[in-house]
Write a protein that binds this DNA or RNA. Structure first.
Lengths: 145, 145
DNA sequence: CAAATACCGGACAAAAATGTCCGGTAATAA
DNA sequence: TTATTACCGGACATTTTTGTCCGGTATTTG
């Protein structure tokens, strides 16, 4: 479904979000990688990209690390993260890989897939990092194991 | 969503099915690759795997090629093809890549993703190659461009 | 200011996916 | 029987994804 990079990116963002929301605390790479069970250097690369797109904030030096501002917690959605890392293909590409697939020139699965993809779009569009972080805070969801 | 191998495999199967159903005609690799716009040698590899799993039938020599028996047309589903090529992960794996993700130990997206994945499962499980080939035959769907 | 910390960025490495080539084998047709 | 056809299988090549390493830079603390 999603690439490894995207899985790590989402998990990292939720963890950072949870720490920012609960304790107003920045978290370092080592901490993140340990908490979401991901390779540290690779996760760093993914987060660097998200920083460039301003979906998460980073601070260098001692006491530095990654954090989500209250606005980022409230406004950054799963969709933004997925598109930033994997591109828009999963949200709009043809299931059978046809370069041109539309209602006028559909692949054999087009009309069956459409509602499913629409729901996926809706799911990613309507869930913010802050909301998902809340579930982790409440012990209702987990980021590893 | 699906790998390239899987996209080619599904498209090839539908094309073979359409030719088998409409004309009782075997189709060769060159023909298939041209009709579904895929790399010939790579498509061969994918089909070889499907032959081994007996989802499609092949015959060597002159007048040889690939065909789908009436029974294969009626019984082979998209799900069988997808699982044969990409494995079962997309139908059961966690969206965030957690090795253990369940209702008891859910990832933050678990309960939102479940209905979408269930629908995908249902879609793949209930559509046969024969049915999809029929759409191509009727000019209601296409396999390239 | 100096030292330590932690992200940044680019180069590099390994693994997986994608794609190609070619000799071998089975089947058909003349 | 012999030549031809077309799939089979393995080796090989390329590209993409995944993952690592290390020096550079910005920031904080003493």
């Amino acid at each position: 479904m999603f690439s490894k990079a995207c899985e790590y990116g989402i998990r990292a963002m939720i963890y950072i979000g949870q720490q920012s929301a609960d304790f107003g605390r920045r978290v370092g790479l080592k901490d993140i990688a340990a908490e979401i069970d991901s390779p540290e250097a690779f996760t760093a690369k993914v987060l660097q990209g998200l920083v460039r797109q301003q979906l998460v904030t980073s601070v260098k030096g001692p006491t530095g690390g990654f954090e989500l501002t209250p606005e980022q917690l409230r406004t950054v959605t799963l969709k933004q993260i997925v598109v930033a890392i994997d591109g828009p293909d999963i949200l709009q590409g043809c299931a059978l890989g046809l370069p041109q697939c539309s209602a006028k020139q559909p692949c054999p699965m087009h009309f069956q897939f459409l509602p499913i993809r629409d729901q996926l779009n809706e799911l990613l569009r309507t869930h913010t990092i802050g909301e998902l972080a809340g579930k982790v805070h409440d012990g209702l969801a987990f980021l590893k194991r």
